[in-house]
Amino acid sequence: MAFENPSREQIADILRSAGNIAVVGLSDKPERTSHMVAGAMKERGYRIIPVNPGASEILGEKSYPTLKDIPEPVDIVNVFRRSEYCADVAREAVEIGAKVLWLQQGIVSEEAAAIAQEHGLTVIMDRCIKVEDAIALAGGKS
């Protein structure tokens, strides 16, 4: 069966109930897309947790080298990594008990989707979380 993203209504529910969003591959460089998207999500009321082994702090938040290093629950794992790294990220997302694996626009990994879905995670691929938030929750999360 071909992969299908959740409906817009389901995505709105996911975003509305989202607590912590771990952003894997979040760059500390302000000109990078991951930095702009995560910054915008933080401004809209989301709790962002950077995951970048090369940075200690991004967007005023402590950065962690891996998902497993995050000492609190994670609802959404938002991924800004190339497709070939996504299966490993999916395995880590499963290990930490995340609810959603979200691969950003332009990122598709059937393997990562299968791993996550097999363990009960909702999977969203090739969609920008910032764009979906703007459409689904036009008034903002809070």
Score class of each variant (00 low, 15 high):
Ala87Gln: 14
Arg91Thr: 04
Tyr64Cys: 03
Lys68Gln: 14
Arg8Phe: 10
Leu26Trp: 11
Gly139Trp: 11
Ile107Asn: 08
Arg32Val: 02
Asn20Tyr: 10
Val51Leu: 09
Leu101Phe: 10
Ala134Leu: 12
Asp69Cys: 06
Val89Glu: 01
Pro65Asn: 09
Asn78Trp: 04
Met36Leu: 15
Ala93Trp: 03
Ala38Leu: 05
Phe80Met: 01
Ala114Thr: 08
Ala116Glu: 00
Ala138Thr: 06
Ala55Asp: 00
Gly139His: 10
Arg16Val: 09
Thr66Leu: 07
Pro50Thr: 02
Ile76Ala: 04
Asn78Ser: 14
Ile11Val: 15
Ile49His: 08
Leu67Glu: 00
Leu67Pro: 00
Thr33Tyr: 15
Asn5Leu: 09
Ala93Arg: 04
Ala12Pro: 08
Ser17Arg: 15
Met41Ser: 05
Ser63Tyr: 03
Gly60Lys: 13
Asp75Gly: 03
Val37Phe: 06
Gly106Cys: 03
Ser7Gly: 02
Leu59Pro: 01
Val100Trp: 13
Ile115Pro: 05
Arg8His: 11
Ala38Gln: 07
Asn78Gln: 11
Ile124Phe: 07
Met125Asp: 00
Asn20Asp: 07
Val23Lys: 12
Arg32Thr: 03
Ser27Met: 13
Met36Lys: 15
Ala136Glu: 05
Thr122Phe: 04
Trp102Thr: 01
His35Ser: 11
Glu31Tyr: 13
Gln104Lys: 12
His35Asp: 00
Glu95Ile: 01
Met1Ile: 10
Ile70Ser: 11
Asp133Glu: 12
Pro71Arg: 12
Ile76Thr: 01
Asp13Glu: 15
Ala116Val: 02
Asn20Met: 01
Ala12Glu: 12
Ala38Cys: 08
Ser56Leu: 07
Gly25Phe: 02
Lys68Asp: 06
Glu61Ile: 01
Ala2Pro: 15
Asp126Arg: 12
Gln10Leu: 05
Gly54Asp: 05
Ala134Thr: 08
Pro53Asp: 06
Ile48Asp: 02
Gln105Asp: 06
Leu59Glu: 00
Met1Leu: 13
Glu111His: 11
Cys128Ser: 07
Glu61Ser: 07
Glu118Asn: 10
Arg81Gln: 10
Gln105Phe: 09
Arg47Ser: 14
Ala112Lys: 03
Lys68Ser: 12
Glu92Leu: 01
Ile124Thr: 03
